[in-house]
Design a protein around this nucleic acid. Sequence first.
DNA 1: TATTGTTATACTCTATAACTATA
DNA 2: TATAGTTATAGAGTATAACAATA
Lengths: 137, 137
Amino acid sequence: MSEQDALSEARVLSYLLVASSDKAKDLFATIANEMDIPVSVTRALCAMEGPAPMSELASRLRCDKSYITPLADQLEEMSLVKRVPGPDRRVKMLELTPQGIELRNRLEARIAELSPAMNSLTESERSVLKTLLEKIS
Amino acid sequence: MSEQDALSEARVLSYLLVASSDKAKDLFATIANEMDIPVSVTRALCAMEGPAPMSELASRLRCDKSYITPLADQLEEMSLVKRVPGPDRRVKMLELTPQGIELRNRLEARIAELSPAMNSLTESERSVLKTLLEKIS
DNA sequence: TATTGTTATACTCTATAACTATA
DNA sequence: TATAGTTATAGAGTATAACAATA
């Protein structure tokens, strides 16, 4: 591969990453709209596993902590998560409620139905993609 | 793979796509900041190849055409592109100027230096990633 | 003094809708 | 009537900075 091709590859790959993530965001928007809930809520649910400090959700969503407070408020109002005490008294952990888990499961199912990654790739391709994305994240 | 794992995979993969593309956007922001130009300009330059209608840039950037007008104005003010006549008189094509090409080359070089995709993946891994991303785009 | 989360505010990005000119 | 681009405006999403409580 020539040096110029290598440079051009960097640009194209970065552009493709931006484009495909925009597409993933469109998918969240479509599903959020179907389910009549805010996109921010769907993204938060997809980023949550077990109980974790609010600051960890901020880092997973790559946003400022000040964005998490009203988001967590909304999630609590919708009874999807609850704030629980953390290891020290400054920390508040977010924990999915049973309703939160149930909604997250429905989200997963719908994403699986609509996602181009699920529809256009084989199982082994998805596995490779996941590995590669994890390497660059 | 169990059915539940397949669902969870869909969610995790979508989350990873969003996260990695956000990271790619951060990269553009960092470089734009270094070069003291707007992020929108860097993204436009990376999405442009030969002369193309303004509407095509909109579709490459996945934005509304109304966003392209002021962006093209800015690109012209910076002497990076010029509007040239298209196949019919409604269409305006955007064409990179020599300065535009020069800046795009510098952008490419900087992306190649900083991009996690270039730094953390081998050449063959990048090739696979590009193929997979193109499949789902 | 440093850190977690909160609050109030401001800003950036981008879309919507109405418009002009071509087709 | 439909399409490409333009304009003015509005809205969503998110960050910044100052603050409170705790470490």
